[in-house]
Amino acid sequence: MTSTVQNPIELLRDNLEEQFQRNTDQLAELTLRSRQPGRSGYDRDALAALIASARQTVSDTAQALRRMAEGSYGTCERCTADIPLQRLEILPHARFCMPCQRAQTG
């Protein structure tokens, strides 16, 4: 009997790959709009902020996929503890466990 249940990490990989494609498409669209006369109705500052956010999301997602390929995905970059699956499900590109994230931003 073949199981249709996927490994949680495989599901996260699929999610990250879809997110990467979606955000890459969004970045391309926003970049195109920024080059059009009148920026397709977008305010210059708002468009710049959207582009910066899309670039960061593409970068974060690409880094998470790279960590998966290297085998370090799900390991805190600061303390090397496992990042709980629940955190990765909420924030698939998480690089730090919660205590280290708090220390990073606190």
Rank of each mutant, 00 (worst) to 15 (best):
M1R: 14
T2I: 07
T2M: 07
T2A: 09
T2K: 00
S3K: 14
T4H: 15
V5Y: 11
V5R: 15
V5T: 14
N7A: 00
E10K: 15
L11Y: 05
L12T: 09
L12Q: 11
R13W: 03
D14H: 10
N15T: 15
N15W: 15
N15Y: 11
L16A: 00
E17C: 15
Q19C: 03
F20H: 00
F20W: 00
F20Y: 08
R22Q: 08
N23K: 04
D25Q: 09
D25C: 01
Q26L: 14
L27A: 04
A28L: 09
E29H: 03
E29G: 00
L30S: 05
T31Q: 09
T31I: 13
L32K: 14
R33Y: 09
S34Y: 05
R35P: 10
P37K: 12
R39D: 06
Y42E: 08
D43Y: 02
D43R: 07
R44Y: 11
R44E: 12
D45F: 10
D45I: 06
A46P: 12
A46V: 15
L47Q: 10
L47R: 13
L47F: 10
A48P: 02
A48L: 01
L50Q: 05
L50A: 13
L50T: 06
I51M: 07
I51Y: 06
A54M: 05
R55I: 05
V58D: 09
V58R: 08
T61S: 03
Q63F: 01
Q63A: 13
R67K: 07
R67A: 04
M68G: 10
G71T: 10
S72P: 10
S72N: 03
Y73I: 11
G74S: 00
T75Q: 11
E77I: 06
E77T: 03
R78P: 01
R78E: 09
C79N: 10
C79G: 01
T80G: 03
A81L: 08
A81P: 13
A81H: 13
D82E: 05
P84E: 01
L85M: 07
L85K: 09
Q86R: 14
R87C: 05
R87T: 03
L88Q: 11
L88K: 04
E89N: 05
I90D: 01
L91V: 15
P92Q: 01
H93E: 13
R95V: 03
C97R: 01
Q101K: 01
T105A: 11
